[in-house]
């Protein structure tokens, strides 16, 4: 249900604006469960190479994914640690 299979297309889809999000991470809280990475519908995130003070790697924006986040906020919802969120970038939305 996260990757919807619906074939229905909204009539005004060309008028829709796809928001762009900026990813924020609180590295010290992360426990490396990878939920945000694996459930991101745009595959925006990857694990850091560095670890936090407790030895966990944390999510960072993957190479080439700088503008891929659409601010769906699922990473923020699914993170068990409240260690990641996104903020909509004003005026940076794109039409499909």
């Amino acid at each position: 249900m996260l990757r919807g299979q619906s074939t229905r297309v909204p009539l005004d889809w060309k008028a829709a604006v796809l928001p762009q999000g900026q990813v924020y991470v609180i590295p010290s809280r992360c426990k490396e469960c990878r939920f945000c990475i694996d459930f991101c519908p745009r595959d925006v995130l990857t694990l850091s190479t560095e670890t936090n003070v407790r030895g966990y790697r944390y999510p960072v924006v993957a190479t080439g994914k700088d503008v891929a986040c659409v601010h769906c906020e699922f990473c923020s919802l699914v993170c068990p640690e409240y260690a990641i969120y996104t903020v909509e970038v004003a005026g940076a939305g794109v039409t499909p």
Partner: peptide
Amino acid sequence: MTTLMAERHP
């Protein structure tokens, strides 16, 4: 834009 680090969550 890359990852930005934060101290607090909304």
